[in-house]
Design a protein around this nucleic acid. Structure first.
Length: 404
RNA sequence: GCGUCGGUGGUAGAGUGGUCAAUUACACUUGGCUGUAAACCAAGCGGCUUCGGCCUUCGGGGGUUCGAAUCCCUCCCGGCGCACCA
């Protein structure tokens, strides 16, 4: 057995039973390989456009980190070259080429978010970051033809999303077929043993399996992980387009609050896919009152990405604010002259239109903390006060000393 | 290239000369009820407003008309069919 690779069967079983949708070709073979003590090379691809990461992304990294801890090699691949095409999994068709500086910046951003989960500084076995432009930019047309000759158009068209787009009369661009080829070639270039990704990546990951078999006669394993979805509706829990995601770099207060606003039905899924709380303990937690269970989840998450202290503080803030009608510790402040309209002050401070503020005032959404509602659209500010706008927006107003 | 259908607000998708700031659904915001959950009820959901209105929006530009998201021309983008395929 190779140095430093753990074959602890209990740990392996635990790892394989959580957040993993499928292992190809079979989970049994994969487990045997893990038990053999061979040091395996794992990789996961990531979008190089440098987005804000959210909890939906964390699942894979949590799992990878566990494999890293077992002693396996972990590569995180930045798809800076594939970004030229854009993954057809999402709808965007055309993307703009990025400069090396931009890519480097994205990697820095990305790393600052993920290093809370994945260890890049371990002296013995740190996770590594690679960029696929390193090899993809060097391929010749001849290489591409050779790679492409392993796939058929029929095969490509099997992809659900292509089929869907064809059926609904949406365009399918030829270059989109290259995406799986490129991602597949990444596996070859790095000669990996295992690729991991969400279930939505299965097709792309299989392309790599085909190519590795062809070029190296090697059986790559594929781990597809469950996507964080609401079990009741099947909808994605963290959707960037809907803006309701919990970002890995959210402030403790935001993270706590957003977690508490999640539907009850998703708490189990969240615990399993986004925390390291042991499965047995999760079940125990879920026996408690839903609110308590959710608070525990929120605490757990804030602790992971910030600290236990921050979690405690976020919880205190949350309880103080919402259960007892108080104000959080950190509230935006504005200084205005006495006689300024609420309308103007709020529009300015909240970056909303005046019409929007008018609506909010009409709806009774603006009130003084612990006091009266502001009901008159034309009312003016005459003294310093703390305002609450809707459920979770606050504003402390102070008066400028000098007069207008 | 020819023909044909289509491009509407966050999304889907109505509207085919004035009653359209544009039906409806979903999403979203706010109020109520709560556990800042869900469900449910209600209101809102382009901007500005002296609250009478005014301004900007239906792929881009131009035109017809008292008046256009709606008609015409043109350009751009897409689907489908046909043709071309050195």
């Amino acid at each position: 057995m190779a140095d430093g690779v753990s074959t602890d069967e209990q740990k392996i079983d635990e790892l394989l039973s959580r957040s993993i949708a499928e292992v190809l070709p079979t989970k049994k073979d994969f487990k045997e390989l893990l038990l053999s003590g061979k040091r395996l090379r794992f990789y996961i691809g990531t979008d190089a456009t440098g987005p804000q990461l959210h909890l939906g992304h964390s699942t894979n990294y949590l799992i990878l980190e566990k494999f890293r801890q077992l002693g396996h090699e972990i590569i995180i691949l930045f798809g800076d070259y594939t970004a030229l095409i854009g993954d057809p999994t999402d709808k965007e068709a055309a993307r703009v080429q990025q400069t090396p500086e931009q890519v480097a910046g994205h990697i820095r951003d990305w790393k600052s978010q993920v290093e809370k989960i994945v260890n890049f500084t371990d002296p013995i076995n740190p996770a590594k970051i690679l960029q696929n432009s390193e090899w993809l930019s060097k391929l010749s047309f001849e290489n591409l033809i050779d790679i492409a000759s392993n796939f058929t158009v029929q095969h490509m068209l099997e992809r659900d999303m292509f089929e869907k787009r064809i059926n609904t009369g949406k365009p399918v661009y030829l270059h989109e077929f290259f995406y799986p080829l490129m991602q597949g070639y990444d596996s070859v270039a790095m000669d990996v043993d295992v690729e991991m990704g969400g279930t939505d990546q299965t097709f792309n990951m299989l392309a790599g399996r085909i190519l590795q078999k062809r070029y190296y006669n090697k059986e790559k394993f594929i781990i597809s992980t469950t996507l964080l979805a609401n079990p009741a509706t099947g909808k994605k829990l963290m959707s960037k387009s809907e803006g309701n995601y919990i970002a890995l770099n959210d402030t403790p207060q935001d993270m706590f609050g957003k977690t508490m606003a999640l539907p009850d039905g998703v708490v189990r899924q969240m615990f399993i896919d986004t925390t390291n709380v042991p499965l047995a303990e999760i079940e125990k937690i879920l026996e408690e009152h839903p609110k308590k269970a959710k608070m525990r989840l929120a605490r757990e998450l804030v602790t992971m990405y910030h600290s236990a202290d921050a979690a405690q503080k976020a919880q205190d803030d949350w309880q103080n604010t919402f259960s007892e009608g108080g104000v959080p510790d950190e509230v935006p402040e504005v200084f205005v002259f006495s006689g300024t309209k609420y309308l103007e002050t709020l529009a300015d401070a909240l970056h909303e239109s005046k019409s929007e503020i008018r609506r909010l005032i009409d709806a009774g959404a603006v009130s003084e903390v612990g006091g009266e509602k502001v009901t008159d659209v034309d009312a003016v500010i005459t003294r310093p006060q703390s305002l609450r706008i809707g459920k979770h927006r606050f504003l402390n107003i102070f008066l400028n000393i000098t007069s207008k």
